[in-house]
Design a protein around this nucleic acid. Sequence first.
DNA 1: TTGTAAGCGTTATCAT
DNA 2: ATGATAACGCTTACAA
Lengths: 351, 351
Amino acid sequence: MPSPPDTPDRGLSPRTTIIDVARAAGVHPSTVSRALNPATRGMVTDAVAERVMAAAERLGWRPSALAAGLRTRRSRTIGILVPDLVNPVFPPIVRAAEARFAEAGYVALVANTDTDPLREALLIERMAAHLVDGLILASAAQGSRALELCARWGIPVVLINRRLPAAGVPAVVNDDVLGMMLAVRHLVALGHRRIAHIAGPPGVSTAMDRRRGFELAAAEAGIEAGPIIATSAYTEAAGRHAAEEVLRGPPVTAIAAANDMLCLGVYEALAAAGRGIGRDMSVTGFNDMPFVDRISPPLTTVRIQHAAMGRQAADVLLAELGGAPQPARDIMLEPLLVVRDSAGPPPARVT
Amino acid sequence: MPSPPDTPDRGLSPRTTIIDVARAAGVHPSTVSRALNPATRGMVTDAVAERVMAAAERLGWRPSALAAGLRTRRSRTIGILVPDLVNPVFPPIVRAAEARFAEAGYVALVANTDTDPLREALLIERMAAHLVDGLILASAAQGSRALELCARWGIPVVLINRRLPAAGVPAVVNDDVLGMMLAVRHLVALGHRRIAHIAGPPGVSTAMDRRRGFELAAAEAGIEAGPIIATSAYTEAAGRHAAEEVLRGPPVTAIAAANDMLCLGVYEALAAAGRGIGRDMSVTGFNDMPFVDRISPPLTTVRIQHAAMGRQAADVLLAELGGAPQPARDIMLEPLLVVRDSAGPPPARVT
DNA sequence: TTGTAAGCGTTATCAT
DNA sequence: ATGATAACGCTTACAA
């Protein structure tokens, strides 16, 4: 027939396929497939492999991940879901994970959930449609249907940063309990006996664990676990309000906040109240997010191994994809106290 | 036959396909395809559509983007390449672009090039294998083979943040010339007559354009375009070295830096030299990156519309994918001077 | 409006 | 070690 039956032509010359390469190399397409795929190259003679690869190169052949994925049911694609890439906690994690996946030949689909369960579900659905081989979830919050969806579609998941106790999936997180204990121990060592805690939002493991660390450290030091103010979100405004509440309450000499962002608000409230930070009132944060070493005074805080977190999560997922079913346990990363100037000895007792 | 011919079974029940749905709904698979695809739903009776969708829902059918993509040669996937997601400039851009693409039904493959041309080429190749419908490049630097590769494979590209003059592809960038002029005009209005410029690395459009803005503004004000110190990278260390060089040179009362990161180094150098920032020496930055409002003194800088950049780049690419070939022109976004405390009037002349 | 059939590019399972 | 063949799941001219 003179006219082609199907013409989705976009002006592109028709793609070079392994069939073209086969013709050029004088072998069967299956042989080309074997020669071109590093994993099966061993099945063909070196001479043939050479010839095929030369032909492929000459014809400008490129693999079609789509066609291969359709056949193998694996896309060599990983989904990474974060609440908000603009939150400075996530870029280092995502970057490290992406790098690790790239090494292993995977590409990463990244999306922001905006902490919106509907959006999250939609994105997971879409990623499932793209046949992601696995999913990294940094947005885990209690009550999310995410894990349920993944389970339904058989998508392996690794949680990151936040864990979901008893969720049945592996998680790579910071040891938040220990981290907060480090901060409080530091304050205690400086001489503080009355310390307030500004806690994170409910239902989030980082908030719960850090709060527990606060209580444990207080018990350990034999001091009362001072006022604990819960916030509704890890935001500057929430931190400011909480600090104002602390100032209105029973006197304390230090505030251990669950998060650096909260500290920015704490700084504002203290400045407004005329309290010298690190002198009249000590403050510690959590995360060691970028630039908290440049604010005034530089923030004493707990550093999290963000990059290691992303890398390890990727490793766990890759291991699972490699056929080794992963135990649903939490991998804890060691936090590190970073001492700067926002926490000092308590002011001399006026009495 | 008792034994299935092909068993790539991973423990998953065999996927529900439109064929299963067709059987359940009592129609032909092609009808199912039409009913399930929003774009072609109009071709079938409402009643049939209802029936098909109900059956699909009941059977737990999910679309296979791979199969569809293989057929249509479009993956509904966009690649986004950034040098380094940890650089605070990029998250807002990527986030906004991703959001826009998501709205349009696309998913985003995000990767970090690390400013490594080889890595960049590898990633583009891999994205091509995944049949990305388009590419957003934030890593454009002179001498990169990226555009060449994309052109070879017919992948539409939009540059972002940095432009490549005469590259033949659309770019969405900040108006860097104007931005630097705003900064210098501000300094001039404050009374400065001898201003130094710390410029960005060579071959990068932001550096070249901001430098030109500096020169134009100086000419406009009838003052000499003071010492211009070129740096090798937008880093804190480079900024420190450059500032030290400025201090060693002919006296100036202000420094207009090409980038906020450089300013952090400038602050250090000035502090080390005992110069009061904003009093003995004024400083302006560029980008208004996160937290420069929290350093001491808060930085006067030029704000870039990062989010708008990402959104517009996405829009341009989507328009192109929609069939409207885009002109290869630069879309300039309006910068905004943000006045804080790092720039004040020059010190009274001692003479 | 719906059915028919061909094909997207690759890989897995045979058989040789 | 290589060849033949049949899928993978979906879309789309074309026919009815």
